[in-house]
């Protein structure tokens, strides 16, 4: 129990797993962010039908566990004829899932802008796309940055679930090492420590952004 040799020997392997975790999280975060912004804009500016569909999408996604979506995507995607490599399959599911949460964060950012900003932009005779591009979105995204970063932390943690559907990343790597070394305590602490380093670094960055938002730079 006190022997951490199994962890030390397998640490490079875990680190490679961590590399996969980061790659997967980053690959999913990009489309999630884009889709999140689009959903937020649709919900704020779209017509009634668009708004209703976005809300229905959010309710669906936020009411069902990610693990359920991942598992069934694993079984269902091949059945529907979409032939994605597993990596892209889970990235797609994670991105769609987190886009829902991100859109809420962005929407809150857009709605919290003072009315004066809209009036000023309209007063300058800006068209709506221009207004969004140079006045509204830059400010809204800045306001949304701290909760957005928390979502990214959550996304990194959520990639651990793909090990359940058989993809290889840090959690899967640590399970493999446990099977070889029979030292679950040490190995899972090691894997947890690596996750902690990634997530805590992100969280610290989020706190830094939060301070900047509060002090209005």
């Amino acid at each position: 129990m006190n022997n951490f040799n199994p962890l030390i020997h397998s640490f490079p392997y875990l680190l490679r797993g961590a590399g996969m975790t980061v790659l997967m999280a980053a690959t999913a975060a990009i489309p999630a962010t884009v889709l999140g912004v689009v959903l937020a804009l649709l919900q704020v500016f779209g017509n009634r039908i668009l708004r209703a569909s976005v809300i229905a999408y959010l309710l669906l996604v936020r009411g069902i566990p990610l693990l359920v979506l991942l598992t069934f995507a694993y079984y269902l995607l091949p059945l529907t004829g979409i032939d994605l490599p597993p990596f892209w399959g889970v990235v797609l599911v994670i991105a769609c899932y987190y886009a829902a949460f991100m859109s809420e964060v962005f929407r809150a950012g857009i709605l919290s802008l003072p009315q004066a900003q809209w009036d000023a932009a309209r007063g300058l005779g800006m068209t709506r796309p221009l207004m969004l591009k140079i006045v509204i979105l830059p400010q809204a995204l800045r306001l949304a940055a701290p909760p957005y970063v928390s979502l990214c932390v959550s996304l990194v943690k959520a990639t651990s679930l793909v090990s359940i559907v058989g993809l290889w990343e840090l959690t899967m790597a640590s399970r493999e090492v446990v099977e070889r070394t029979l030292a679950p305590f040490q190995v899972f602490i090691g894997a947890g420590a690596i996750y902690f380093c990634i997530c805590y670094a992100l969280a610290l960055y989020g706190r830094h952004l939060e301070r900047r938002v509060l002090h209005g730079h």
């Binding site: 129990m1 932390v153 943690k157 959520a158 651990s160 679930l161 090990s163 359940i164 959690t171 640590s174 399970r175 446990v178 029979l182 030292a183 679950p184 305590f185 899972f188 602490i189 894997a191 947890g192 996750y195 902690f196 997530c199 805590y200 969280a203």
Partner: peptide
């Protein structure tokens, strides 16, 4: 608070389930 919030639930669960049984 920082440790539990910045590590995946799944790892915590494995640690408790497999780790404690070894102990």
């Amino acid at each position: 608070i920082q440790i539990v919030r910045n590590t995946p639930l799944l790892i915590q669960m494995y640690l408790v389930y497999f780790g404690f049984s070894m102990g």
